[in-house]
Design a binder for these strands. Structure first.
Length: 927
RNA sequence: GCGGAUGUGGCGUAAUUGGUAGCCGCGCCAGACUUAGGAUCUGGUGCCUCACGGCGUGGGGGUUCGAGUCCCUCCAUCCGCACCA
């Protein structure tokens, strides 16, 4: 009987499904292990061969852990809300739920064919009301909490109100928006609306007017991680800055904990570094500058607050710069400069984010006519506006120190502003001196101090005078949480007297309503404004925005622990058992989005006692991208003639992508090519000496337009799922990006046929022997057990595949068909190739699934070598090998080596200066 | 510009602790079987050289009995951030 992978794989996939082999429950008699894949967004294009790479790795690990006696949670689901389905709905009028469900069905189908050990009972879909109920629930909880910097955790807003009633907010240290100080009396005499307005400044989910990334083409606001190089990540549409009233999550409250938490995580250094950069912690000082009265203007009480990492250079500040969007711009500008300033503000406001980035190098700015007062010298400092100061970072204002900041230097040179050196060590006629090395000069009480000492000293001085204090600033910004779109979670929010209130928890889920079109209304309101009766029972209007993509993915790993619980996000029992994710596998593209948001989300749930672990993902591995390998044919210009790769330079040619499925080992199937496109039906070909047409190749992104897409379905049809799984692992280290080349797959497929053959005689009959294994056979098996186990534990799956090949090659040449050897081999092979392992396991007479077997222990006794083959090197170069007993003394080895005829030949006339014998390793003779 | 990673045969890669560089597979070459081969099996295959031998892990330098591995320096590629005050 042949190795009929199609039949075998269908059979076992059905078996696992019918027998619920991979269904798991909490089981206190076994240790738990939680293996998670980043769940996919089910796109219309389906899976290509690159997508399942991480899923295969995690499946191997899950099955391995299971064989080792762990109770393994290994679920899968879908990130089902999102823009592509909605864009498609706009084009076709079809409800996005229909498209999404079709895509999900297709994904599920594709995934099933690969033979994953998922517990499909726990499947979640973020667009399912039973699921997003808990996304809405968590939002309500965030609305009802504030962040107390004193206790360093989220606390109920009710506790905050009690403090306000008793003593106002002067003793409250909270992560909050800008809010004025008020007393208990003031609080108690406020209207409900005023109180609500103040509470919004404290809530962890809050409504505020902020500058947002507005994408006109998508008709929605985007978060920072959804914008790259001034265009939307999805679709590449231009993004502009716009002031809008939006929901935000106060992620910044957790900035320090998000940063500290990284230390304990087993994530790659590069990923941690990306997160550290994104959080962007910098230490410095917050300094307030008074504003000098200008002629013909009323006195301005407000101060310009700046953040600087170099307060030591305070005496070098020669001017101030506000971002054009800064709220004080209008107030400080004098009559004389009014027009010039408003022109400048308008001009920069018109630019999209992209234009602003493109013009980053060109210097522009405008003087306002006003002056600030230097906190120590009291010198007047001219106040400028310029777009080199960003509204969104720090306070949107800076003190400019041209002598020691290159941007300020360029600006000062351009507008001929004074440059004052205050740190020695540079040459300010050449450029700014930004280094921390040097002593402070020209700086009154700071003179002579090294930089670090000066920073410390000046901060104390500011604090004494009340004009500033030490401060830690973060680049991380609060996450904008509103999207003016249809296909997302509705906010459980209604408005009363223009103030937002959240729904009672028992009203959840607030189900996404039907609309007549998925477009904004004529008034420019979001699509939900089209819904009939989009109001509460009492007639209060409901929020029209929906939540962003990251909402649903921020806690899905928690929901998997207890997916059918209707009363809780997760039961205490399930959460205490499964705790958090032990191994998380997914792409780096989520480094600054999902992986920050879900850490924030999880910390909030931890603070409020919903989950027991502070970090969601202990170990994280980023699988590398699988790239496409494109093939080219070369058409001679203005003809329908194609010239083979090695002859192409003799002609003027245009390279054209050709479908990789009609090319094998870079040889074009000419007939298939003619049929591929009617245009080429009559094409002529200039072939090479071998009569073949050779194609060129390039490594590119796998995409339809490059004709290099390979789907798992095609591979499975031709070679089977076990071959696909094994080959994906064989390609190289999991983390590396590497090209997919179907041509190499034969080697892996041959391997499986060899495995099959080990269990069958020449006539193809199943045949095993119950004889006692030989020492050689035991050595081969035990070496493989050890190697494969070690490799899996360090996620080096590619090397375990070659270990299997070596093992099977060796057993084949020994014609080993002993069940004592082959049964263990099947167990260790089963995580990689579960279908063939199950089939042969059953043929061995086993009644239960191999998934329930126990991983074999290797016996070191079988691996020991009695004789060691010593490489004999001369000055480190290997020339020959000699065998000696493993326990032979180094001095005896040295003597025997030097007496060996071949060694003597190599030494010749030269003198032996030294002999190094490393026991069981090597001999080196220095001559 | 800053930060991170990676550079080994024609290709994907291996060498876990400083100890035989190139395991395993693809491709290629030769042979066997065959009416046939996109089947199977056997052998070979880093480069230069008829050979003896020499050279080889991006380049240069260093430490060491011994370096793909450690140190210095330069180069290339990829990824992230980028007026972040």
């Amino acid at each position: 009987m042949d190795y009929n992978f199609t039949k075998i794989e269908k059979k076992w996939q059905k078996y696992w499904d019918e027998n619920q082999t991979f269904k798991v429950d909490t089981d206190n008699t076994k240790p738990k292990y939680y293996v998670l894949d980043m769940f996919p967004y089910p796109s219309g294009a389906g899976l290509h061969v690159g997508h399942p790479l991480g899923y295969i790795a995690s499946d191997i690990y899950s099955r391995f852990k299971r064989l080792c006696g762990f109770n393994v949670l290994h679920p899968m689901g879908y990130d089902a809300f999102g823009l592509p389905a909605e864009q498609y709905a706009i084009q076709t009028g079809q409800h996005p739920a229909i498209t999404t469900n079709e895509n999900i069905r297709r994904y599920r189908n594709q995934l099933n064919k690969i033979g994953f050990s998922y517990d499909w009972d726990r499947e979640v879909k973020t667009c399912d009301p039973g699921y997003y109920k808990w996304t809405q629930w968590t939002f309500i909880r965030m609305f009802k909490h504030w962040y107390n910097n004193k206790t360093n955790k989220a606390e109920p807003i009710g506790d905050l109100i009690k403090i306000f009633e008793k003593e106002g907010n002067k003793n409250v240290d909270a992560a909050s928006s800008d809010v004025k100080t008020f007393s208990a009396e003031e609080w108690n005499s406020m209207s409900e609306k005023q109180q609500q307005e103040i509470l919004l400044c404290y809530r962890l989910a809050y409504l505020a007017d902020t500058m947002v990334n507005w994408c006109p083409a998508l008709g929605t606001v985007l978060a920072n991680d959804e914008v790259k190089d001034g265009v939307s990540l999805r679709g590449g549409h231009p993004v502009e800055q716009k002031q809008m009233r939006q929901w935000l999550l106060r992620v910044t409250a957790y900035a320090e904990r998000l940063l500290e938490g990284l230390e304990k995580l087993e994530w790659s250094d590069s990923l941690k570094e990306i997160q550290r950069n994104w959080i962007g912690r910098s230490e410095g000082a917050s300094i307030r500058f008074g504003i000098l009265p200008s002629e013909g203007k009323e006195k301005i009480d407000e101060k310009i607050e700046v953040f600087t990492t170099r307060p030591d250079t305070i005496f070098g500040a020669t001017y101030m710069v506000l971002a054009p969007e800064h709220p004080l711009v209008d107030k400080v500008t004098t009559a004389e400069y009014k027009d010039a300033v408003s022109d400048y503000v308008q001009e920069t406001g018109k630019k999209t984010e992209r234009e602003r980035l493109a013009e980053a190098k060109s210097i522009s700015g405008q003087f306002t006519g006003a002056y600030a007062r230097h906190p120590f010298s009291e010198d007047p400092l001219p106040i400028w506006i310029s777009d080199y100061v960003l509204a969104g970072y720090g306070t949107g204002a800076i003190m400019a120190v041209p002598a020691h900041d290159s941007r300020d230097y360029d600006f000062a040179k351009h507008f001929d502003l004074p440059i004052k050196e205050v740190i020695s060590g540079g040459d300010i006629s050449e450029g700014s001196y930004d280094s921390l090395e040097g002593k402070v000069i020209n700086s009154d009480f700071l003179n002579g101090m090294p930089v670090r000492k000066a920073i410390e000293t000046v901060i104390k001085e500011f604090e004494k005078k009340g004009t500033g204090e030490g401060k830690v600033n973060y680049r991380l910004r609060d996450a904008i949480f509103s999207r003016q779109r249809y296909w997302g979670e509705p906010f459980p929010v209604y408005y009363k007297d223009d103030m937002p209130y959240v729904l009672e928890e028992n009203k959840l889920p607030l189900v996404l309503p039907e609309v007549d079109a998925y477009l904004p209304t004529e008034k420019g309101e979001p699509p939900l404004a089209r819904a009939k009766n989009w109001v509460t029972e009492d007639g209060h209007p409901l929020e029209l925005s929906t939540m962003p993509g990251f909402a649903g993915s921020s806690a899905y790993y928690i929901r998997y622990m207890d997916p059918h619980n209707e009363n809780k996000l997760v039961s205490e029992e399930a959460n205490r058992y499964w705790k958090n994710v032990d191994l998380y596998i997914g792409g780096t593209e989520h480094a600054t989005g999902h992986l920050i948001y879900s850490r924030f989300w999880n910390k909030f749930l931890y603070d409020t006692g919903v989950v027991c672990m502070e970090e969601p993902f202990n170990k994280l591995i980023n699988q590398g991208m699988i790239q496409g390998r494109s093939n080219f044919v070369y058409r001679i210009k203005n003809s329908n003639k194609f010239v083979s790769y090695n002859l192409k330079d003799k002609h003027d040619v245009t390279p054209i992508h050709v479908d990789v499925n009609i090319v094998q080992n870079d040889i074009l199937d000419i007939e298939a090519f003619r049929k591929w496109n009617p245009e080429y039906e009559d094409a002529e070909f200039i072939t090479e000496d071998d009569g073949k047409y050779h194609c060129g190749y390039a490594i590119e992104k796998m995409s339809k337009s490059m004709y290099n897409v390979v789907t798992p379905d095609d591979i499975i049809d031709q070679y089977g799922a076990d071959t696909l799984r094994m080959y994906e692992m064989f390609l190289g280290p999991l983390e590396h990006a590497k090209p997919w080349d179907t041509n190499g797959i034969d080697g892996v497929h041959k391997f499986f046929r060899k495995v099959w053959k080990l269990f069958h005689d020449e006539k193809g009959r199943f045949s095993l022997s119950s004889e006692k294994p030989s020492p050689e056979e035991l050595k081969i098996l035990n070496k493989t057990i050890k190697k494969v186990r070690d490799d899996i534990e360090r996620f080096s799956f590619n090397t375990s595949v070659s270990a299997f090949m070596i093992c099977v090659n060796q057993l084949s040449s020994l014609k080993c068909n002993k069940s004592k050897i082959l049964e263990d081999l099947l167990i260790i092979l089963s995580p990689f190739a579960p279908h063939i392992a199950e089939e042969l396991w059953e043929m061995c007479g086993k009644k239960e699934s191999i998934a329930n077997a126990a991983y074999p222990e290797y016996n070191p006794e079988y691996i020991k070598d009695d004789e060691i083959k010593y490489p004999i090197t001369f000055n480190g170069k290997m020339k020959l090998t000699l065998e000696f007993p493993a326990d032979m003394e180094p001095s005896e080895i040295e003597e025997s080596v030097l007496n060996d005829e071949n060694v003597k030949k190599h030494i010749g006339e030269k003198k032996v200066r030294k002999v190094i014998v490393v026991p069981n390793k090597i001999v080196n003779i220095v001559i």
